[in-house]
Amino acid sequence: MDKRLLTCVSLCKGRVIADIGTDHGYLPCYMAAEGLCDKAYACDVAEKPLESAAAHIAENGLESKVTPILSCGLEKVPNDGLTDIVIAGMGGELIVRILEDCRWLTSAEPAINLVLQPMTKWDTLRQWLYSNGFEVTAENPCISGRFVYSVMQAVYTGKTPDYPCDLRYLFCGRVKADDDDGREYLQRQAVRLEACAKGKQASGDDDTAGEMQALSKTIREECE
């Protein structure tokens, strides 16, 4: 288990989890073996990864706790008693499609805890969550190898969150510069902002370019 997946585990709250895009099933097997959940679903859209997950489950004697499910997103996942959904290691646009296609997600009682870790298009995911009644209650960055990831914890409230959906939120989410992981994540986002600002400037959008450059400078100062 790498730090990225352990960060996802740390944001799970309940006892019945579904890991979407489980690959080898490391996360649900770890949680079951460590007593962090009572039941887990290891879900994948492809048969080969699911076979690997099933083998990993059997090797660890976890058949009674972890169930492999061939499913496109959440389509075949039982929602009775489900407390947590983990979707990690995918692009933000794909995560959005999976959430959009789940008909019961916004009517679940109590609300399901979402743990989301986008590899790309984090701004698309943050915008969609904000616009569709999901509040990001926590966002934990983590350095894993050469990469820095952000893991979001979100819950459906049906209301517009009380934080602004501005440029900073879209690029940096709710990450703060209060530890090495947070500072590294924010510094890399500052670099991305500078690159985007150059593109905006080249296209004649000087106002947006200026806003991006100013935000990049602010973030860098916070990380000093």
Rank of each mutant, 00 (worst) to 15 (best):
I20L: 03
L36K: 14
A32D: 06
Y41Q: 11
Y26P: 00
S64M: 08
T7R: 11
G21N: 09
I17A: 05
E47D: 12
D23W: 07
T22S: 13
I20C: 06
A42S: 13
K39H: 15
E59Q: 12
D23R: 05
V9E: 15
C12E: 07
D38E: 15
G35D: 08
E51I: 05
A46M: 14
K13M: 09
E34I: 01
T7E: 12
Y26Q: 12
K13A: 13
A55T: 11
D44V: 03
D44F: 05
P68C: 13
H24I: 00
T22Y: 08
H24P: 00
L6T: 11
P68Q: 13
L11K: 08
G35N: 10
L6M: 15
L11M: 14
A46G: 03
P49D: 06
E59T: 01
K48M: 10
T67M: 12
A54T: 13
E34W: 00
A58P: 01
L36I: 05
E51V: 02
E63P: 00
C8R: 03
D23I: 01
C37S: 03
L27T: 09
L36G: 02
V16C: 11
P49K: 09
K48V: 10
A55F: 10
I20F: 01
T67V: 14
A32Y: 04
S52L: 12
V9G: 02
A40Q: 01
K3D: 14
Y30R: 05
C12L: 02
L6E: 15
C43W: 01
R4F: 10
I57S: 11
D44Q: 06
V45M: 14
D23E: 11
A42E: 09
A58E: 15
T67Y: 07
Y30H: 11
L6F: 07
D38C: 00
D19G: 06
L6I: 06
I57G: 10
V9Y: 08
T7D: 12
A46N: 14
D19N: 05
H24V: 00
N60W: 12
C12W: 05
A58R: 13
V66G: 12
E63Q: 15
P28H: 03
V9P: 03
V16Q: 04
D44E: 11
C37E: 09
E59N: 09
E47M: 13
A32K: 04
V9A: 15
T7W: 12
C29R: 02
T67D: 00
D38L: 09
G35I: 08
A18G: 11
